[in-house]
Write a protein that binds this DNA or RNA. Sequence first.
DNA 1: CTAACTAGATACTGATACTCTCCAATATTG
DNA 2: CAATATTGGAGAGTATCAGTATCTAGTTAG
Lengths: 212, 212
Amino acid sequence: MRISQLAAATEVPVATIKYYLREKLLHDGVLTSATQARYDDSHVRRLKLIRALIGTAGLSVSATREVLLGLENPPESGHDLLGIAHHAVSRTAPDDADLSSAQELLDRWGWGAETCDRDTQAALVKALHGLSEAGFEAPAALLDRYATAMQDIAEADVESVPTDSAEAAMRHVVLGTLLMEPVLLAMRRLAQQSASFRRFGGTETSRQSGTE
Amino acid sequence: MRISQLAAATEVPVATIKYYLREKLLHDGVLTSATQARYDDSHVRRLKLIRALIGTAGLSVSATREVLLGLENPPESGHDLLGIAHHAVSRTAPDDADLSSAQELLDRWGWGAETCDRDTQAALVKALHGLSEAGFEAPAALLDRYATAMQDIAEADVESVPTDSAEAAMRHVVLGTLLMEPVLLAMRRLAQQSASFRRFGGTETSRQSGTE
DNA sequence: CTAACTAGATACTGATACTCTCCAATATTG
DNA sequence: CAATATTGGAGAGTATCAGTATCTAGTTAG
């Protein structure tokens, strides 16, 4: 398979494929001469994965590279791979941040604070800080309800990891983590719309979009 | 309050404040002369809100402008305001997309498909499509579990909307929708880490971060 | 009066994710 | 076998976004 065919098969422009090759997101094809290389199904799959990570999950190119690297060189522990996936989505500032408020919440929810990485805790603190800066104080009861729901989902996530192959497990954890996030958010919005309609009703002008 | 004091009070650089003024995110101060304007608390609050929407919720400047506009000129129905908030976060392509798969899911979950806006449905379809393109098929049971959890959260969201003032309700809906998303995602990650640790254990090298 | 500050307009920057252009070296086709 | 098309590889160019910086007067505080 030549590069133009790879492009056709994935609907990714040739120039973009070359860019991904340069950026080491996509492994090189097998050179058959100085100006010709052969690509195969693995490239097709990889490209689709790249596009899903960048397009669907919204990762940056460099975060995508790290995730793919992690998938190829899996750490000894699945827990560490999860860390790689989480690290890829956490666009947190370098350091500091007072994690004590996070620790308290984690304790309250029974999630061992020591099993959770600092970046993710910092992300929570930052998100909550953003809320309060905007003058929105989330009641503890609401947060607890969120926590319960998230714990349920996380358990479903972890349970659904296949145990037969380590390879498959890795893939499942990473993709399930990253690619399910947009699904989750879309579902929340739909559920909100449904709940808000039941609660408040709507006008005739509701539900229209794209007129702007 | 002069612009430099506003900057000091919010930790937003003067140049950035001027940019927000140009972009109509922030309302003008009261001109006291050709080269002097007065700002007040409303500017401080607004700036913090802008920073939360852009920084915490990750909105673009133009999406932020639309949200703020919606908050200032509230539509007759709260449901429509929710639409504005949701529209702001849905970076969906213009048109098309086959929504029938979404309709089916919405029916299954008892969320009236007709009460849900098309952009959000399209976002769900796109997210699910990304999943399957990446070779990850989410089992229906898992999706259903997500749906149950999201419905619970959405109901909590809607219930927590204050009913006394329409003004406060608007604010609550929009901020609760937009600013809680990063909280939700951080909580899911933490819950996953906790669940994965319980399920698989971890190595000594786990939980380290920022070493890259 | 002088030094510091300001509004407003325009221009510039840095990051990101592509996209284009070239060239020599094939590969394909007639 | 000659004309045409395609490729690998490298470097430069582009578009967008979210700011920053500079400049010109005018204004104000000490």
